[in-house]
Design a protein around this nucleic acid. Structure first.
Lengths: 259, 259
DNA sequence: TGGTTGAACTCCTCTAGACGACTAGGTACG
DNA sequence: CGTACCTAGTCGTCTAGAGGAGTTCAACCA
């Protein structure tokens, strides 16, 4: 049985924080394992002799830290760590495309996950100021916008939106829902734009409500944002891809020369 | 005057969420500017005709989203976006060291910030399993551990801990609090280890209570974690640096060849 | 002038209780 | 046997109120 300890009313730290501290320790030290259920609110009310809201404040703290998730009608459970996936910086290298797989598919399969893609939407829009800037286009020039959601083992792990200049996509399968073997990078190269390099801009923040829904995460989980720009051998930007990933599911690896 | 709207008791969405939605919109559309004060709890209680806890739930929601910060005795304010700093992947290139500045100092000054370092602690410890693994050491071999906190314009922005094999640091200023011009990388190269490349592993998560305190952020702000390993021209790992950054203050830039 | 006090305002924490909604398991009925 | 219902247990939301503590500023006093 779990040792819930006691709270000390004389000390400076408020009771709800003390309770959160106790539970947090149990989780961090593994005495409350991932997936395991926390004591119910009622049990903690009895044990600590506090009001309902006090216990709920403690649980809320752990929820915003992303340590636990509450399930209405069932209980509060220690978050089960999703599989962490390491993304190497060469994941877009041409050799990974040669057997006809897109980067995500190849990488996820190699890591032993069942990959999936859904919610694919393809539109033709006027470029926003930021996208035009990154692609070196005139404002309002038209771009193909491809957005989709990626799944690993059936769980959503990232949503991504790509922007490709219409001038490059014209006459290719890029504007189709199904882009064919090797994905859009294969099509871009077939269109005569040999890929030379990418730049990636990485940041992190809390998700918007829309992103929370798409990624099926609670408000305590941050997201990694990654904006990748692909350049061809002539130095022209041929694609911008804006990706939002569930932060706890990824480690991004980069190799940097010291020069 | 701000239009606080009204809540609709007949609709499915609970009042505290409706209030949060209204405030969130005001913030996102700029009608509540960064640094501006939200209506007080009492004002919102009157306006919406709800109980205290309902208003507080709404504010709590915005706090965990990192949109606002509460100041005891003063009010709740829209979070003023901290200056975002872009870190280029070549920030450790040798040329940035040649005028005797460490990477952080040079980069922050170039970006127009007043850099600072404090809480420097230097110890000599047995390597943990993970550090030994990364440095290619035998378990329990000794390493110099350097931890410090970096400030920009007086505000803490990152904490970092470096691990250098004692065999490399011996006889250098690396084990001193003041490492001299160019920082530890200059000392490592002087010791005969010319730096060839780095690997960086980037991830994001919510901060621990300790990190929250050191970085002076609330529980709604995620952190970026960056583990950098430096290799010399012989392929030997000469340093591991574990960095925790305030996520909203940074954009990391990487350049990736397509190969 | 300069320091202190006090009031008014802010958010922080806690109490005690109510009703609602979701889940799971047992039971009674068809 | 299978379905429908009931019930106990869970978390979700709201109310109404209390005392505490940090901040600000004006009024007061020495």
């Amino acid at each position: 049985m779990l040792d819930l300890g006691t709270i000390d009313r004389t000390v400076d730290r408020p009771p709800y924080r003390q309770i959160a501290d106790i539970l947090r320790q149990h989780i961090e030290r593994g005495r409350l394992a991932p997936g395991e259920q926390l004591p119910s609110e009622a049990a903690m009310i009895d044990h600590y002799g506090v009001a309902r809201m006090t216990v709920r404040e403690a649980i809320k703290e752990l929820r915003t830290e992303g340590l636990v998730v509450a399930q209405h009608g069932k209980g509060v459970f220690v978050r089960s760590a999703p599989p962490v996936r390491r993304l190497a910086s060469d994941r877009f290298a041409r050799r990974h495309r040669q057997d006809g797989k897109s980067a995500f598919l190849a990488e996820a399969e190699a890591a032993g996950h069942v990959p999936g893609v859904d919610q694919i939407r393809v539109t033709n829009e006027a470029a926003s100021a930021e996208v035009a800037e990154r692609l070196g286009l005139k404002p309002r020039e038209r771009v193909i916008v491809r957005s989709r959601r990626y799944l690993a083992d059936g769980r959503p792990v990232e949503v991504a939106t790509s922007y490709i200049p219409e001038s490059i996509a014209k006459g290719t399968a890029i504007a189709e829902v199904n882009t064919g073997p090797g994905g859009i990078y294969a099509r871009i190269e077939e269109a005569g734009h040999e890929l030379a390099r990418f730049t990636e801009e990485v940041s992190a923040r809390m998700p918007s409500p829309d992103e929370r829904k798409a990624l099926e995460i609670g408000s305590g989980s941050p997201v990694l944002t990654l904006v990748r720009t692909a350049f061809d051998t002539k130095g022209r930007a041929v694609e911008v891809c804006d990706t939002v990933k569930v932060a706890t599911s990824f480690v991004l690896e980069y190799d940097v020369p010291a020069k």
